[in-house]
């Protein structure tokens, strides 16, 4: 029962969108739509001002295409509990985001769920957060 409650809380927290991007307008992405894609991590660019999670998605016909998810810079991701080592190349993952309006295979990152069930998004650090002394 307790396990179910924890999972439910994690799902609720993961629905929270990441904060607005200061570096550029939100206009390239359609905030009214979401896409969810399953694939394998190709690369996780852990860079400023934005990080990019790139996954290879295989469609029903066996064709592979890359999707890029834009997120915040490393310091922000560390704070909310998304480490570069969490999403290494080859990791199976399901990623959700707001897609680009022009149909490009890219989206603004909302959350990722790894094959082992661990959720990465706003609040994924929550349970581990501690207060600094003093």
């Amino acid at each position: 029962m307790r396990r179910v409650a924890v999972i439910a809380l994690a799902n609720i927290l993961s629905l929270l969108a990441l904060p607005a991007l200061a570096h550029h307008s939100a206009s390239p992405f359609d905030s009214t739509r979401t896409v969810t894609l399953s694939g394998v991590v190709k690369d996780f660019e852990y860079t400023n001002p934005h990080s990019w999670l790139v996954i290879d998605v295989t469609d029903s016909g066996g064709r592979v295409s890359s999707w890029s998810f834009e997120s915040q810079g490393p310091a922000f991701l560390v704070r909310i509990g998304i480490l570069k080592s969490d999403l290494t190349p080859g990791t199976s993952v399901t990623v959700t985001g707001h897609p680009m309006r022009d149909g490009t295979h890219a989206a603004s990152f909302m959350r990722a769920v790894r094959a082992d069930g661990k959720v990465f998004g706003m609040g994924s650090r929550g349970a581990r957060r501690t207060t600094t002394p003093g």
Binding site: N48, P49, A75, T131
Partner: peptide, 28 residues
């Protein structure tokens, strides 16, 4: 008060991923 808080004094030019399109819009 997060134990993981960090101020990364970064340079945005390190991996700037936005440019201005021909109509003045932000392109990724």
């Amino acid at each position: 008060t997060s134990a993981h808080a960090l101020v990364d004094l970064y340079s945005c030019a390190e991996n700037n991923n936005v440019y201005q399109g021909k109509n003045g819009e932000s392109e990724i």
